[in-house]
Design a protein around this nucleic acid. Structure first.
Lengths: 338, 338
DNA sequence: ATGAAAGCGCTAACAT
DNA sequence: ATGTTAGCGCTTTCAT
């Protein structure tokens, strides 16, 4: 059995509430003598006391934990984001629990519930599609939360997202200005608002430059693991290149970009076919490919920090907060002249 | 406030212990009528009851959680491992909590303590250097744990690791058989046993093929973020290529391979210099580089599954277990003919 | 077949 | 300045 405050109390010869006060740094305000404080602290250390987080959380009603729901762990963007979130939360004295939903609605609901059961102080969520109803529920529960990367226009919630329309517009315009006219684009098959915004940005750029929108050049790929994505893209890409005569591709998501680039480079670009590529989200290898791949760089660190800031703010001022915080970032186009 | 079993009890009009029994699936064995069971379940659903994990854990003394300590989140290998661990643990009904130590001893101790405070049922740890003492403590605490990727020869603990010596030997031999003679190698500056094994494997291969070991060709890089690694490698690599006339590199770690390859390809290989590269750990982009990069592929999924299996086994048979489980995997050399 | 009650470890209000 | 005590939500043993 592990050491409890009662053991410390018995060891030092005081009541266990005194121990609790000292251990919580409330010695001074309760006028507990410095000498006793020191003895208690020493005893705790000697006995290797470790506070039971469950008991403390149960008693207090909340914990100093926040839950982070990641949609897709194989996406570097989310992992980096998680890292910054953890680092930032630590500054405020909060621990972060992680869980992944694999872009699955039910799994997402499940992990959110698990977090709620754990009495987390708040949530940071990269929501899966179809989570709208659950998110609405959270609002009723009065639990602070922030949506990241994606949000639901109909729900008034805190969010931290990208300016998807503008970013997609910029990417498309970049290709157009390089003289490209047959611009394919890959998106993630979803009803998510943010993907619609990206497609609209793409269309708008085409329109502004008088390029006819061709429905055939838009490929929507469901969320799959890397292997299955490769199979699917292994059908789409040859069709686009050989039959539809494309001269460039704008990958709207990391999950299509990685397998897409693999196929594209192995089968076409490396053997001399000139197809320009630009992707949402940068990757450390893009600059090493021949030719390199351009990208839309997202301000991951800022997004992580901001998410935590918003969340902690709401946790601390629970009652006061009325207005939800909506932050929209711009991507930076990394021009690798490809 | 949230809904408790008391609320359900009041709602249905029974005592709250009855509710507890039903909710724990012990209705039958306590001969609670099927009808009442149904009413209680319905009430729980209707009131949107969510069990308080803290209270349950406090009462039970353990939780169905296991803690996973990751050393370096920027390493894809560990992220993938984490994913498989989570998936496998779920099959046994366990949740996985994640935390990263950033290869820092103190941070590692901290997160292990946090996990212990949370009453986790067991731990899976990718230990940071210097964690030996803490690991020994864990043994005394009788908490089940498994070390992954690295272990301490002096400590009798469960572990799941690679055959580092053989893998390094194979990689070096691969380069030698391609006719390379000036083989540089990058390792992680540490006293870790597994890195020493890799260096020994490298040396052994050189010796077997009568190539003189040159201390200057061995570079040890401390654990740094990607940016700082690039700076450091930006000094080492030109020196190796220009002054020491190397013809190949064996990167012993992912953390040196990624920035190393970046510098190598940008400054030398892309402009015609012929330097073969092989790395511990594969990467999806290796095959796309020109020339491609060979690698030692680790059986990540098996390692994850095995770690969980060992851990759960020890959790379930706490008292019985005497022998520790030591699993060693072999890497597969991916020959990209570079 | 159902209820009463103890107690897990801790915090904090109240007492002395 | 330190001690007493109630109770957070739950499980489980023992009564009835």
């Amino acid at each position: 059995m592990s050491v409890t405050i009662k053991d410390i109390a018995a060891f030092v010869g005081v009541s266990y509430s005194t121990v609790s006060l000292v251990l919580n740094g409330k010695a001074a305000e309760n006028r507990i003598s410095a000498e006793l404080e020191k003895r208690i602290l020493a005893a705790a250390k000697e006995l290797n006391y470790r506070p039971n987080t469950l008991a403390r959380g149960l008693r207090r009603g909340v914990t100093n934990t926040i839950g982070f729901v990641i949609s897709d762990v194989s996406n570097r963007f989310f992992i980096k984001l998680a890292r910054y979130v953890e680092k930032e939360a630590m500054k405020y004295g909060y621990r972060v629990l992680f869980a992944s939903s694999d872009e699955d609605e039910n799994r997402c609901v499940e992990v959110v519930n698990t977090f709620l059961n754990q009495q987390v102080a708040g949530l940071i969520i990269i929501p899966a599609e179809g989570l709208e109803e659950k998110i609405a529920q959270l609002t009723n529960l009065k639990i602070p939360f922030v949506l990241v990367d994606r949000h639901f226009p109909k729900i008034d919630a805190n969010y931290v997202v990208m300016n998807n329309w503008q970013s997609a517009y910029d990417a498309t315009e970049y290709l157009i200005k390089k003289g490209k006219k047959r611009i394919a684009t890959f998106s993630y098959a979803t009803n998510f608002f943010h993907m619609a915004e990206r497609l609209d940005g793409y269309k708008a750029a085409l329109k502004d430059y008088n390029i006819r929108f061709d429905r055939q050049l838009v490929k929507e790929v469901p969320f799959l693991d890397n292997e299955k994505s490769e199979v699917l893209l292994g059908e789409y890409i040859p069709h686009l290149v050989e039959d539809l005569n494309i001269d460039s591709i704008f990958f709207q998501t990391n999950s299509t970009a990685i397998p897409g680039i693999q196929i594209l480079y192995e089968r076409y670009i490396r053997v001399g076919k000139d197809i320009s590529v630009i992707c949402f989200d940068d990757n450390e290898f893009f600059k090493l490919l021949m030719p390199p791949v351009s990208s839309l760089l997202q301000p991951i660190e800022e997004m992580g920090i901001e998410s935590v800031r918003i969340l902690i703010d709401e946790i601390k001022n629970k009652r006061a907060k009325r207005m939800k915080n909506k932050t929209v970032y711009s991507a930076k186009l990394i021009d690798r002249n490809n």
